Amino acid sequence: MSATATHDELRFESKSLDEAATVLGETYARTRISDRRQPCGTVMRIHQRTLTPDVRLDALEFGLGFSAAVDPLETLVFTELNTGRTRFDSQGQSRTYQAGESYLVAQPDQAYIGTVEDVTMSMVIMRPSLLDKVAATAGPAGVPIRFLGHEPTSPQAALRWRGACAYVRSSVVTLPGSEHNLFRSNAASLLASVALDCFANTASSEPTAQDGHDAHPLTLRRAVSFIEDNADRDIAASDIAAAASVSVRALQLAFRRHLDTTPMAYLRRVRLAHAHSELEAACGDELTVMSAAARWGFGNPGRFAKLFRDEYGRAPSEVLRSS
């Protein structure tokens, strides 16, 4: 066995299936392997990167075939199968996948039997509570959001999901400023948002009559004050709504009614203003455009530059050079 670890990254490799089962149990859920095929080389490789406490990015490779009974994961494991084949049996249903397909392994509270055949896969491991925070609803009577299927709702949705995953994986490693907490939390929220968009789920978005009554100017003032005081924190619409003492739907309706925007778009504009101020006040220090952008949660350089130019009429690099 070989293993290396840093504060947010782990690599593991083993030629022992029993050893691999132990690591799988410690990493995901208790795993009992059966119907194994005798390995002739490396059995398993894992590369884990922690994005935030709510999201981890895993790459997993099995160099053999086997079946395993797995206890409930208690997390959401979204998988992109790159090579090989997998099958999942749970609650009397069987699902099979091949290279190029994306899927949710199982509901967090469901045990399953998984079968793999010489696979490599990329996974997003997500705490279910992040979905409630990002979707800004816990459903009727506080019931957490639940996915209604295991595959994206269409081929286009599958492409959007894979594209978002590819962007986050590359940006976590390669983009300057990716160590900033706000950058990482925004990337995690992006994955949760795209998952909710691409996989059928129980999230509701219809405002009630009470929401309409609460969407008054005082709600807006409270929300704006909270956003401006907390733009440097990892906040979601649910946090803003709590500060304004209304539901998230009422909050969204207030912003739409009085400012013709959304709470998160307003937050993005406030963060953009902070990035602009930092670039304007750089005074020859070592600040770069991307470090300022990342500090305020903007991970896509092209998107940041466009938003900046649309708002201020100048490129961020121009503002930095003139400081």
Rank of each mutant, 00 (worst) to 15 (best):
R221V: 15
Y167D: 10
A192D: 01
L196E: 00
A209S: 14
R221K: 14
L191V: 03
A215D: 07
A209C: 08
S185R: 07
S189A: 06
P207W: 11
V173I: 15
L218F: 14
P176Y: 10
L196I: 03
S204H: 08
S185W: 07
P217W: 13
G212T: 13
N201I: 08
S185G: 01
N181F: 05
A215M: 09
P176K: 09
S189Q: 05
Y167M: 11
S205Y: 09
S189N: 06
E206H: 08
A209D: 14
A215N: 08
S171M: 10
P217G: 11
Y167G: 04
G212V: 14
Q210Y: 13
S170K: 14
F199E: 02
A187I: 02
A188Y: 02
T174I: 12
P207G: 07
D211Q: 11
D211T: 12
T219Q: 10
S193G: 01
S178C: 11
C198I: 06
P217V: 15
L191Y: 00
T219K: 12
P207Q: 09
S178R: 11
H213A: 15
V194L: 00
L191M: 02
H213K: 15
L196T: 02
S170W: 10
R184E: 03
T208C: 09
E206D: 04
T202E: 04
E206K: 12
L175T: 12
T174E: 12
D214C: 11
N186K: 10
T208L: 12
N201V: 07
Y167C: 03
S170E: 14
V168C: 04
V194Q: 00
A200G: 05
V173L: 15
F183Q: 03
A200D: 08
L191T: 01
L191K: 02
L191C: 00
P176N: 06
G177L: 07
A188S: 06
P176H: 08
P176S: 07
H180L: 01
H180W: 04
T202S: 15
R169H: 08
D211H: 13
N186D: 04
P176G: 05
L218T: 15
A195N: 01
N186A: 04
R169A: 09
D214W: 13
S193K: 05
A187Y: 02
D211S: 13
S178P: 06
N201D: 05
A192N: 01
P176R: 10
P207S: 06
A200L: 06
V168D: 03
L182K: 06
H213L: 15
S193H: 00
S170G: 09
S204M: 07
V168W: 06
C198Q: 04
T208N: 10
E206G: 01
Y167P: 02
V172P: 01
P207K: 09
S178I: 04
G212M: 13
V194S: 00
R221E: 14
V194E: 00
L218Y: 13
L182P: 05
S178T: 06
S185Q: 07
S204W: 05
A192G: 00
A187M: 07
D214E: 14
L220C: 11
L175W: 11
E206T: 13
